[in-house]
Design a protein around this nucleic acid. Structure first.
Lengths: 248, 248
DNA sequence: CGCAAAGATTGATCCACGTCAAAGAATTTC
DNA sequence: GAAATTCTTTGACGTGGATCAATCTTTGCG
């Protein structure tokens, strides 16, 4: 494998896979045309840094494909991931001109970027964008708060189970809800990245995954492919309410 | 002390102490008049619950005076505070009709509430409100992410120092920045509430406060009054960068 | 192919923080 | 003003997860 990205063919909003979920979700055709004038696409290989915390940032944008991480690092190197950016998630903050967090491509990613200044100007005139961004930000805030409970109060096993449960649920909703057969999905993160996300060490992550496997809660094919024979069982292990503590 | 609140005299937005910081910060006079028609004041004694997670919520609103907490509880009783609501902070989410978290008055509080339905309608027509709410939500998201680093990666001592540092900074900015003499302020929370905020037990909180006192980082007058002789020293103990890791 | 590098597992040991328990302030109640 | 209640401190002890270290597996590359 070349491990090199093609220069992404400029797409049209019309066939954008995240058209209905991103900041531009509510935009009318004419608004999309305006956005089109200030947008450009960028690709990053897995492992590359999109931007460092503190760096000047002259764009905002959306993840179109792939996964990126948002992380904070302390002086001595301890790091905490504060968000996982999935397709349609928004990067950057209008009104701020330096990045608050490190953004790193976890897999190969493609982003749709808007030049910041004109985007900000457009936001003032286009309620559809501000409305959608508010909605997305409120959702992120809920996710961050759910994560605070996980980081502050859950055991290592519960943290792993919670994370797997989220992945399982997301995949199930993507590939249409299959009754309740076994769920199968891939882990998008290395053990180390999972550790940074869950506030653990990579050794503890590895041990707890092994423990869940030993206890029959999950099965592994290779290191990265998980099957969950009984989702309710996994859910119990996560420490959340039966209904998944769903918010919205 | 009677421990009973006077029925709060209905105020006028004109002399509202949080007029320039709350959701209504950007509103024009006519917009305030509109808001006035759908608003009402409510008071809660310290310790009272404003609303339980899952309860139906037919209002949104702002904290005017006092402090409230936003918390999540697991089935077995473990709880994690996910936010501290200070004067001008917003409660509730437009578009959602049940509370996502327990809201509890930490001190006696007064709130300015808006009936949810008409507030939502008004938000659609009044960009000033939506704009301000977006800004406030982005700030809260940053605060939540800073807290994720604290919960996931900081030691107990660093957690306490970080919390004290935040309180000290807030008080300093309230009472005009005094050169760099010793800072003095009160702890608004019990040891248990601090524990729930910091993801610790109350015993650990007590021990670490004692340790910081023993090491001369802080002094105590009574249980709740703290003086910080050297702010930089406290800051170092918090594990944050010299500049406080300030975002905006 | 065979070597290097990255990722993952597993074991042995340590210690920061939780748990359990007692007792000392401070505040409220009658 | 004594008793009850709430908040806090402190001690003794146990443990979950971190740390240190070795080995294994997988993948990429000359």
């Amino acid at each position: 494998m070349l491990n090199q990205l093609d220069n992404p063919a400029p797409r049209d909003c019309g066939d954008c896979p995240i058209r209905h979920r991103a900041v531009c979700a509510r935009c009318e055709v004419d608004e999309l045309e305006q956005l089109d004038k200030i947008k450009y696409y960028r690709s990053f290989q897995a492992g590359r840094t999109v931007i460092w915390a503190g760096d000047e940032m002259d764009f905002v944008g959306s993840v179109i494909t792939g996964i990126a991480s948002l992380a904070q690092t302390m002086e001595d190197g301890r790091t905490q991931m504060v968000g996982l950016l999935l397709p349609s998630d928004f990067v950057g903050r209008p009104g701020r001109d330096t990045a608050a967090y490190d953004v790193v491509a976890v897999s190969d990613i493609v982003m749709c970027c808007f030049r910041k200044k004109p985007f900000e100007k457009m936001m003032e005139q286009t309620p559809h964008i501000a409305q959608r961004l508010l909605e997305m930000t409120l959702d992120e805030l809920d996710a961050a708060r759910e994560w605070m409970l996980l980081l502050g109060r859950k055991t290592a096993r519960e943290k792993i189970a919670s994370f797997l449960s989220i992945l399982a649920r997301r995949n199930a909703s993507l590939h249409l809800a299959q009754g309740d057969g076994p769920l199968v999905f891939d882990l998008p993160l290395t053990r180390e990245a999972m550790a940074d996300y869950l506030g653990l060490t990579l050794e503890t992550v590895s041990r707890q995954i092994s423990a869940l496997k030993r206890d029959g809660v999950i099965q592994l094919n290779g290191k990265r492919n998980v099957t969950v024979p009984d989702f309710d069982r996994l859910q119990e292990e996560s420490g959340d309410d039966a209904d998944g503590g769903m918010l919205s």
